Simulated scan of single mutants.
Amino acid sequence: MDMSVFNGRKRAEDGIFLQLRHPFTDEPIEEKGEPVGFVVRGSAAPSVQARLKEMQKKVESADDDEDRDALMEAMHSAQIEGAMPFIISARNMELGDKPVETEEQIREILNMTFPQMDFAKDADGNVRQVVVKDDEGNETRAPQFDITNKTFAQQVIDAAQDGARFLGETSGG
């Protein structure tokens, strides 16, 4: 058997095409019959590992002064930053009449879909609760939330972390 089909790191570096899906309906997005999406590297790609290491250094040196009211915006920004190292290029996308080619344009596309949250419910339709501690260490119950859509950034991250997508055909030999 030709074992090169298992070289997921090389294929992760080369990238694969990810067709974007509608964040709420999960329908594939197309333009004039052509799939719309990104060519993405896998998380095992050496170049991605290097970019992630640089990002980690920035995170470790940043001040932890996050405003709690800005949690969703911070999560959205983190998703975009998390997706950027994986994206090689855009396909079949324009902003107005300009093809999407630059990092700034790709960020603009990723910024278009924002995570939506709703109360998490159990099988009976009741809002799930979690136990949290306040600043004094007292336990209290709070509603649990779920994200109800899949942003473009999250789609990129999920695809990049799916190692099986980066393996070739493994039958025969």
Rank of each mutant, 00 (worst) to 15 (best):
K98T: 11
G37C: 06
E103Q: 12
T25H: 06
F24K: 11
L95P: 04
V48I: 09
F24L: 15
F17L: 09
P28Y: 02
N7F: 02
G37K: 00
M72N: 10
A90W: 04
S61A: 15
E60D: 14
S61I: 06
P99V: 06
F6L: 13
I87S: 03
G37I: 02
A70G: 06
R68A: 12
N92M: 01
A74P: 03
I106W: 03
D14S: 12
F6A: 03
P28T: 00
R107Q: 04
G8I: 11
D26T: 12
E94Y: 13
I106S: 04
E108C: 06
L20V: 01
D26W: 04
P99E: 14
V40C: 09
H76V: 02
S61E: 13
M84C: 05
Q49V: 14
D69V: 08
F24M: 11
Q19M: 04
E31D: 13
I80P: 06
K98H: 09
G8S: 12
L20M: 04
I109H: 02
G33S: 07
K53R: 13
P35Y: 07
G8T: 12
K57Y: 10
N7W: 05
D14K: 11
E101V: 11
S89L: 06
E54G: 06
A90G: 03
R41A: 01
H76T: 01
